[in-house]
Amino acid sequence: MLTADFAFSKISFACAFLVLILVTGLLLELIIGSELAFSQLGFSFVASTEWNPVSKSFGALPAIFGTLVSSLIAIIIAIPVAIGCAIFLNELTPKWFSVPVGKAIELLAAIPSIIYGMWGLFVFAPWFADGFQMWALMNLVEVPVIGLLFDGPPIGIGLLTAGIILSFMILPIMIALTRDALASIPNVVREAGYGLGATSNEVILKVLLPKIRSTVVAASLLGTGRALGETMAVAFVIGGSNSINASLFMPASSISATISQQFNEASDPTHISALISLGLVLLTITLVIIGLSRLLLGEK
């Protein structure tokens, strides 16, 4: 028994250490590949807004802006929807309804991202342009400050469309994790709340949700990670414009979409190094978000 436990411990350690080696190797490879771009461009690579392979001018700021804003939009939409769906399926509906609906939602996670992108471009974008965008241009543009976010051509594609499509993509995994966390809470906890005279809303909001706070944060982190790195779906609907605009209706770009669209055509070493540098920036952003989430949870 002791030998088996010792072997299991060592194998587990080796697997964990292997993951650390892979992440470290990936980080080193990105650093080496981006050395040329940073040596020639310096800090202007992350501060400049110009991206012109012909003149060898590469600025990552528009791609960073598009990545962060589209992911933020996705998380803002997905978090309340995921929590609401999880509560509805686990606490407010019978099993004969919640089980098949829950399985159907989980199956959405298996849909390839390119399908989401094609649906977003050919179905959602035209409907969005004729519906919400036209309404916003007629009713929200004149509103101070808020109007700047919706002052753009109703073409369907843009930052807001990319964020909405991303929210659809990250919802299944967030709903599944939140629902599993709610299901893991013993029924005695709910019974104790009802025994004290709490209503269903009070039990859910004041007893159950505080217990799954860390799971909700973890689900949000996982969703953010997928949103930050999503490529094909975003490339279809974000517009591909290397610019920064206050309007969410305007076309934009993202780090992953820029890499996927230009890497096969890149022949100049500086251009290739700039694209690898974008990957390094994306990895850095992901690591920063993970660190902030740990601080938020009070973990070391």
Rank of each mutant, 00 (worst) to 15 (best):
A4G: 04
F6Y: 01
S9H: 12
L20R: 14
I21S: 04
G25D: 07
I31F: 09
G33P: 12
S39F: 13
S39I: 10
A47S: 10
S48A: 05
W51R: 07
S57G: 04
L61M: 10
F65G: 00
I73F: 01
I79P: 01
I79Y: 02
P80F: 14
A86Q: 02
E91K: 14
P94A: 08
P94R: 08
I114M: 03
I115M: 03
F124W: 03
A125C: 05
A125E: 00
D130K: 12
D130F: 09
G131V: 12
L140R: 07
E142L: 07
V145W: 15
V145G: 09
G147W: 12
D151G: 02
P154Q: 12
G156C: 06
L160D: 03
G163C: 12
M169P: 01
P172C: 04
T178G: 10
L182N: 05
I185H: 14
R190E: 11
G193C: 11
G193D: 06
T199N: 15
E202H: 11
I204Q: 14
L205F: 05
V207W: 03
R213I: 02
V237C: 02
N242V: 03
S243Y: 12
A246L: 09
Q261M: 13
D268W: 03
A274Q: 04
L282E: 02
I290N: 13
R294G: 11
L297A: 02
K300L: 08
